[in-house]
């Protein structure tokens, strides 16, 4: 039973509906068939393939797939909000316990993916959806792929939204691992604390600059093999930020939080921690305990209308510009 249209992507139209038997709210992704010159869209196939395999409280649930005369339809559970909306909404205050709770749920969902040898490759606040009960779920597996068994398989480096792209991807490495997802989570963690994107590069080239300006330039000593990556560019040598600088950047962060973040955004993918290590981090056991999902902040009751949204976006853009300028000066 379809209620209303909620969005339109490049390859699909999303509708909200309600399951007839359970009255549960569902999202239906109708995939346009036949409009593409290469048959069914790759991301639709990936989404179906991987969501069929994954069942986890922190991964979006695939309820059904069926094909009608004109469409291929993916039925997913309906999740009304995402983390990006919350981060943008400045009327909501995040407590350290809230951040911990979200990060924990993200890592749990990601751990489940990685345990099944699936790379998500597009983690960003926008793809972390929130259920009405506050549970966070990974969504959008359109870029996901299975971790190749053989290291000889080439992967495309053109994945992950720019701001959350790991350095090995920026240098166009064709052999990467689950570590790219960990980097994205690390950046999301920083964004949750800052309430503004941590490394907002305006172009692929600028992204390299922004990343290393904030985190220091990697060298052969800190990241063995970096200079042999295909896209490696000699760039200005930025110093690695000292602990004090980081502390100043993230005022509310505890020592353990900073440690965890540093470990997740280690330049060398081989030294970056994996989900298991991250989940066992001291950060999750120290006080305060993570907020229970049902007590987490939620989106403001009514939808802000278009103008308001546009205004907020503008403010956000300004803020991003400001951070960028501040970093340039620093």
């Amino acid at each position: 039973m379809i209620e209303k249209k909620v969005g339109e992507g490049t390859y699909a139209v999303v509708y909200v509906g309600r399951a007839k038997d359970t009255k549960r709210q569902i999202a239906i992704k109708m995939i346009k068939v036949g409009e593409f010159k290469d048959g069914l869209d790759m991301s639709a196939i990936r989404e179906i393939k991987f969501l069929q395999e994954l069942r986890h409280p922190n991964v979006i649930e695939l309820l059904d797939v069926f094909s009608s005369e004109t469409n291929l339809n993916i039925v997913l559970e309906f999740l009304p909000a995402d983390l990006e909306v919350l981060i943008k909404d400045k009327t909501i205050i995040f407590s350290p316990a809230d951040i911990k709770s979200w990060l924990l749920m993200t890592l749990r969902g990601l751990h489940h993916c990685h345990r099944n040898f699936i790379l998500h490759r597009d983690l960003k606040p926008n793809n972390l959806l929130l259920s009405p009960s506050g549970h966070l779920k990974l969504a959008d597996f359109g870029l996901a792929r299975a971790l190749p068994a053989s290291p000889r398989v080439n992967l495309t480096p053109r994945v992950v939204t720019r701001w959350y792209r790991a350095p090995e991807l920026l240098f166009e490495s064709r052999h990467y691992t689950t570590a790219v997802d960990i980097w994205s989570v690390g950046i999301i963690f920083a964004e949750l604390m800052l309430r503004t994107p941590y490394l907002p590069g305006a172009s692929d080239l600028e992204q390299i600059d922004v990343t290393f300006r904030a985190l220091g330039t990697p060298t052969e000593a800190t990241w063995p093999g970096v200079s042999s990556l295909p896209g490696y560019k000699q760039i200005q040598n930025y110093p690695t930020p000292s602990r004090q600088e980081l502390q100043n950047r993230f005022l509310a962060a505890s020592d353990n939080a900073l440690d965890l973040m540093n470990d997740m955004i280690h330049f060398d993918p081989a030294k970056r921690i994996d989900t298991t290590q991250a989940l066992l981090s001291k950060y999750f056991t120290e006080s305060p305990p993570p907020t229970r999902p049902e007590n987490l902040p939620k989106k403001a009751k009514q939808d802000p209308d278009w103008e308001e949204q546009a205004l907020k976006n503008e403010e956000r853009e300004k803020l991003i510009q400001k951070t960028r300028e501040a970093r340039m000066r620093a």
Binding site: V33, G34, G39, L40, I45, I48, K49, F50, Q52, E53, V65, F66, S67, L72, A146, A149
Partner: peptide
Amino acid sequence: TIIYNEELALEALCFDLTLKSPYE
């Protein structure tokens, strides 16, 4: 034919696409 049958095949396969590789 390929475009037409692709969707049909997908449905016949119950959208179950993950296979274990005996080669591996």
